[in-house]
Nucleic acid binder design. Structure first.
Lengths: 349, 349
DNA sequence: GCTAGCTGCTAATGGCCATTAGCTAATTTC
DNA sequence: GAAATTAGCTAATGGCCATTAGCAGCTAGC
């Protein structure tokens, strides 16, 4: 059955077999409504030859000649699948897959970078095999992103990315609005003294976006902005709870779930229960989360939807000639949970 | 920054800029230990031009010229990610990703087929963009597999595949050995009357492999082969339990977890407890499994390892010129569980 | 001064396809 | 029956790169 082992037939081979020219084979194959016409007999002869010899077009040559490839590259700055990131990345991928399938594109997962993940490698990048790319990762290499942007290669970053120079396209979760809503929900529950806390330096974009939402909530209500505490590490939680008690805080907006968990434990030791004495909302970042028993009030990061949106955006920009940067944000669904309650009464202090 | 929007520089452009020939650019880029030598000054000039203009090689042209692409296609006969299959397919993908990364290959996920998944489409397939492919799916289209085999395109099927005509390469879980072991384990626990049961027609390869293991266990022990029951649907479980009781069966080898669950429930209603009165082992197929409370004795399908092995096999066959079909099987780890106990004593019947 | 050998580069080719200008033969128009 | 049109095809080109044969200029050897 297997003819000419190791070498697949080309259009030229088929042409020779069918007694036509290579161009005719190409025309039959692509069957456009272009000027050229092919008689049914010739067409059938060519198709028969293709079938008999198991002709399959060489996709590389095709893309070289034609341009589009209908392939979307997916590049992550951390290994996608390998264990640690599995739960984090998988929903993004899921969304991309779904949308790509609908838009009739395939996904090329760039995984081969190995240890030090970098897009460019000896002045070359495999990324360009695809028509465009979706970039992913919490700790991207900004230089490389800028270089890619300057190369004119179309891509969409999944996650909020601001770089120097010209802007890049991205899809971001709308942490700001969600944080604002959660904070206002605390206000609505009667909390007067609401604070924000995080672990780490808060320089990352997602962190800034969240804080911004927190501030907006106050501004919208015409209130004086509540305290924002930045802890260096989990060790400092005890001190944080001291401050909470001292300042009479009854509503806490916690950036990380880990932080919320620690606060809950530490507060418990002081006889403060969540949410009876202290309401806590969590801002969707499951980093280092340990337990899953508590049903935290907070929001979800719409990862799957972000994957879909990014894909849609990318394909749209591939279809158009306009290559200005685009941004889109995706709403974060609020999770009601059970850790935000009414302000404790009679707690004068 | 962005020069010549929409068009990336080619080697010819760089060559013109650096005052050399296109071939020189290519040589600098690839820097092989081939015959050609380039002086350091020229090299630097070229590299500088590449950097300045943001040169990136066109991967399609490269693969067209060079041959290998270091891309492995992944094709599934069912959508990979979309919800239902997620848990099923993900471990395979995980294994493929890991192995591909180690072997410095990228993964091209063919997802664009849309509703009716078929490899060939108007006489063409995008699969060949990759150097080879990994095929996946419980309900493959056999015609297409045969056609792909006949086309000479290298691929490895993940799962046991027998087709007509020439054989194809595959990696299969060793259901046979695992089933044999489990059955023998029942023997070792003293069970004299051991039966096999499944839901569905049992024509699929995995089903046949399991039954084979069951038979081998008996043969190895020189026993008369126990009954094999094939149920049409879950409805028939009550009847099955009747038969079990009537035949004095104390050890049951259940193909599907769903079946095991139903048997356990139905047996319970008759006052038969698992494993006190009836030992049940499950053959790794979680199809339709509902609950997870019971710690079934059975085996695991080593999906991740299968993904790795298939990838390794494929790359090895790409590296060699020999393209005969290869097979490999991966052992299924036995899960001790708690549903297989010693034969009930005094149960004369 | 002539040859041999080396260094450093280039011209040319091929890989497979899509596209277009243009050609031939058949058919229609007047 | 000549001119115009049309149907059906092909030759040629370009897309970007890797590879190889070979050329020009130089040095070393005798």
């Amino acid at each position: 059955m297997s003819r000419g082992i190791g070498k697949r037939p080309t259009q030229a081979d088929i042409a020779r077999l069918a007694g036509v020219s290579q161009a005719t084979v190409s025309l039959v194959l692509n069957e456009r409504d272009s000027g050229a016409r092919i008689s049914p007999e010739t067409r059938d002869r060519v198709l028969a030859a293709m079938r008999e010899w198991g002709y399959v077009a060489n996709a590389s040559a095709r893309s070289l000649a034609g341009g589009r490839n209908r392939i979307i590259g997916v590049y992550t700055f951390e290994p996608v699948f390998p264990t640690t990131g599995v739960d984090f990345y998988f929903p993004f991928l899921l969304g991309m897959e779904q949308e790509a399938a609908e838009l009739r594109h395939d996904l090329l997962l760039f995984t081969s970078a190995g240890g030090d993940r970098q897009i460019f490698r000896d002045g070359s990048t495999r990324l360009t095999l695809a028509d465009g790319a979706l970039l992913l990762g919490r700790n991207p290499n900004v230089d490389e992103i800028e270089r890619l942007r300057d190369s004119g290669f179309p891509f969409v970053y999944v996650g909020h990315r601001e770089v120097t120079g010209a802007p890049v396209s991205y899809v971001a979760a709308d942490y700001t609005t969600a944080t604002q809503e959660l904070t206002q929900r605390l206000f609505a529950l009667g909390h007067e003294r609401v604070a924000y806390a995080r672990i780490g330096e808060g320089e990352a974009q997602p962190s800034r976006d969240r804080e911004k939402g927190f501030r907006q909530a106050f501004r919208a209500d015409g209130r004086l902005i509540g305290p924002v505490w930045t802890l260096e590490s989990v060790q400092d939680v005890a001190g944080l709870v001291d401050e909470i008690a001292a300042a009479g805080i009854t509503g806490l907006v916690a950036e990380q779930q880990l932080l919320a968990e620690e606060v809950r434990t530490a507060a418990g030791r002081r006889g403060l229960a969540v949410p009876t004495d202290l309401s806590v909302v969590v801002l969707g970042d499951p980093t280092g989360a340990r337990q899953h028993e508590v049903d935290w009030t907070g929001f979800e990061v719409p990862r799957q939807e972000m994957g879909r949106t990014a894909t849609r955006l990318l394909v749209r920009s591939l279809d158009s000639t306009d290559n200005t940067a685009v941004r889109e944000s995706v709403a974060c669904p609020i999770v009601p949970g059970g850790t935000a309650g009414p302000r404790p009464l009679g707690r004068a202090r």
